[in-house]
Design a protein around this nucleic acid. Sequence first.
DNA 1: CTTGACCTTCCAGCGTTGGGAAGCCCTACC
DNA 2: GGTAGGGCTTCCCAACGCTGGAAGGTCAAG
Lengths: 136, 136
Amino acid sequence: MNIGDAARASGVSAKMIRYYEQIGLIPPAARTASGYRNYSDNDIHILRFVRRARDLGFSVAGISELLGLWRNRSRQSADVKRIVQAHIAELRQKIEDLQQMADTLQVLADCCAGDNRPNCPILADLETVNGKAPKT
Amino acid sequence: MNIGDAARASGVSAKMIRYYEQIGLIPPAARTASGYRNYSDNDIHILRFVRRARDLGFSVAGISELLGLWRNRSRQSADVKRIVQAHIAELRQKIEDLQQMADTLQVLADCCAGDNRPNCPILADLETVNGKAPKT
DNA sequence: CTTGACCTTCCAGCGTTGGGAAGCCCTACC
DNA sequence: GGTAGGGCTTCCCAACGCTGGAAGGTCAAG
């Protein structure tokens, strides 16, 4: 299987497959006599694992940890769970931050006439620090 | 006012101030005879605007647009509102994506015993494509 | 043999921030 | 006046996770 076929089979682009190999996330692929990368079914399996983990928002470092546990038959599911729960916590934190931004902006947008006049409470807010009047 | 003072007064690090100047987000600062950047109260005002906009998640490109409107006294508040609402939509989209990830992971984590045995539904899921069984 | 699609490597960039090196300037203190 | 220390200057590098392109080799079909 060429890298293009592996990309189509796994959902990971050829560029990214090479990148993942380069940074050591996945093992170096076998090569044909002419230097083409050659992928086995097991390699595709690994690539799919990586793809799925990325879709779930894991960083490359996180995927590396998960791959290690996946390969390790004497792993403890508690280790996997710990990684996943830490990641969930990060996601929830990001969600909270973004939600806070969106809420603030929504309030400002609701206060803005949105017409052809220059007066705008949004810009007025942006002049301030943390949404409060500046000391000056 | 030196760049350090400006940084403390605006909440934007000196490093970032230089960077914003370099990429043209803010105008080049005045200089003293010896080459030090010199900031006026108005410059601080601009920096605070930038800081607040970043806190609300705007990209540098977005801030550039907002700054343009801020400076333009004949602006129309509708233009500001449009930019802000587009940004709110982006934020909500990101929130939704992250929420989807977190929900999926939470379900998996809840199914995982988290003990010293290797069996783990999380890893089992990661082997699949989009959470469904692979074609193979 | 030619064409076109594929593969290879390497280099550079995106956006935002932090870190550090080498060297100049300013203030304070002796 | 000399010196120590902090602050300033510019420049380069690193991070994250890719993405694009250039230059060139390989393979299969016509």
